[in-house]
Design a protein around this nucleic acid. Structure first.
Length: 447
RNA sequence: GGCGCGGUAGCCAAGUGGUAAGGCCGAGGUCUGCAAAACCUCUAUCGUGAGUUCGAUUCUCACCCGCGCCUCCA
């Protein structure tokens, strides 16, 4: 979704990007009670972790809205539904949406409920609902659990109501695009549509964007299988945030991505290749002038990337376009066909690509440091891989110090004192610095 | 059982009615004091069977395998 957002913005749209945070539900209430903290304290911790992981992945921050900050509007919304006869109150003070009043129910998930008998599988009596499919808008308070006092009574919101209320508050009764995971299509989004459209009489979201779930090592991700990882888990294992981001974005959103550790390594190499290319462009010593073939390559690539993303956000093809450019341009650099004036166009094409994919500029170091710091404060430092600690700790060398070392190394190489130069190279390597000797001279980068 | 998605080289993964992008890994080569980077070459009868078609990986049907949803878990 971050890519979609970035792509819309790059295409010239003024995007208002809102993300709902569910900070109250049965599970949260239960767990908060278990931990002896308030709902707010409990959710704040997870929201913080979520935002940190998002930041590590270079995900741009949307406008965040929280369910608990919109309780009065929810009550108002439910009140209106009741007035219109679209919802009803049960004896215990809960409110339910009357699905029978929304004939189009099931249109998003393409489910046909016409032939389904109430009570066939679900116990209708359990919650005094009129129909088994009616869903909760508002739940009556239970002793000792968090609840809010509102005009429709005391209680707490059901799951679906928050999304309708918040999106309408921020975006109006009809908005352009609603995104989410494929698992939310039914019932969550279906219910959002039902309660929203039956109230306003207007379309809720014009388009829906559902991303498929990923597989981890070919299996469904789950805690019980032991293949459930957070971003910080992966980083602690030694994977760069950019590798994770690359892997996640390398498969178009409609397809099921198989997230594997081999894949992460592969992604790291891919990113590295593009970073090397960018580095080479910025440091190459070139002859003045321009080569129309190269200029055309840059233009073609920009067009291909745009075309791929416009085609249902085909990220795989956009990436292929950039690799094609890198390969051709690298070959041209090898054969001295690139001129000085060609470089800006090539860099601009890369830049445009990276505005969407967001993996090239950052060297991951600051993000890794943040996570290592976090691990230190939470006692998880021992989980960190040695390479990681090295990266996190490798900032002691300043650019000047590095340049001095390299100058020394070059002097040693000139006098063919290879033992000395190798020692210096090893020293820099262990500090996370890679030194390359090219025909254009020496250059270095942080690994 | 119902609805939906997918099975493409060692791995990941696009795509098209006219014999298949890209990446990773591997092998060989060029360059190089070493290393790194880069480039070149090599590796796929597109799950199985049948049908439609001049021609199918691409359309249809059947089958096998994997995945998701069908539950007040968000």
């Amino acid at each position: 979704m971050d890519l979609l957002y970035r792509f819309f913005r790059q295409s010239g749209y003024d995007v208002r990007y809102v993300m709902n945070i569910t900070d109250v539900d049965d599970k949260i209430i239960r767990n908060a009670a278990r931990d002896g903290v308030s709902v707010q304290q409990y959710t704040a911790k997870y929201e913080q972790a979520f935002l940190e992981d998002s930041a590590a992945l270079n995900i741009e921050r949307p406008l965040l809205v929280r369910a608990t900050e919109h309780i009065p509007e929810m009550a108002e919304f439910i009140g209106k539904l009741v007035e219109k006869g679209l919802a009803y109150r049960t004896e215990d003070g809960s409110y339910y949406f009357r699905i029978a009043k929304f004939p189009q129910y099931g249109k998003l998930s393409k489910k046909d409920f016409a032939g389904m008998e109430d009570g066939a599988r679900v116990d209708v009596d359990e919650y005094e609902k009129d129909s088994a499919r009616d869903f909760a808008l508002w739940k009556a308070p239970k002793p000792g659990e968090a609840s809010w006092e509102t005009p429709i009574g005391r209680g707490r919101p059901g799951w679906h109501i928050e999304c309708s209320v918040m999106s309408m508050a921020e975006l109006g009764p009809t908005f352009d695009l609603h995104a989410g995971g494929e698992d939310l299509i039914f019932p969550h989004h279906e219910n959002e549509i039902a309660q929203s459209e039956s109230l306003t009489g207007q379309p809720f979201a014009r388009f829906w964007f559902h991303a498929r779930f990923l597989l981890v090592e070919g299996e469904k991700m789950s805690k019980s299988l032991g293949n459930f990882f957070t971003i910080r888990d992966l980083v602690l294992k030694g994977h760069k945030p950019s590798s994770i981001r690359w892997l996640l974005t390398s498969v178009p959103y409609r397809n099921q991505l198989n997230f594997t550790f081999d894949g992460l390594k592969s992604a790291a190499s891919s990113v590295e290749k593009l970073r090397n290319f960018r580095f080479r462009l910025t440091s190459a010593q070139l002859i003045d002038g321009a080569n129309p073939t190269i200029a055309q390559l840059a233009t073609e690539t920009v067009d291909r990337i745009k075309g791929a993303l416009e085609d249902d956000l085909n990220t795989a093809q956009a990436q292929a376009a950039v690799f094609d450019m890198a390969r051709k341009a690298n070959a041209a650099l090898d054969s001295n066909e690139v001129r000085k004036d060609d470089v800006p166009a090539l860099l601009a094409a890369l830049e445009k690509f990276d505005e969407i994919f967001g993996v090239l500029k950052d060297d991951d170091q600051s993000k890794i440091k943040t996570i290592v710091e976090w691990a230190r404060t939470t006692g998880r430092e021992k989980e960190a891989s040695p390479e990681l600690l090295e990266i996190a700790g490798s900032v002691q060398l300043s650019d000047n110090q590095i340049n001095e070392k390299i100058a020394e190394m070059e002097a040693a190489r000139k006098s063919r004192n290879f033992k000395a130069s190798d020692a210096l190279r090893a020293e820099l390597t262990s500090a996370g610095i890679v030194v390359e000797n090219t025909k254009d001279g020496v250059r270095w980068k942080r690994k």
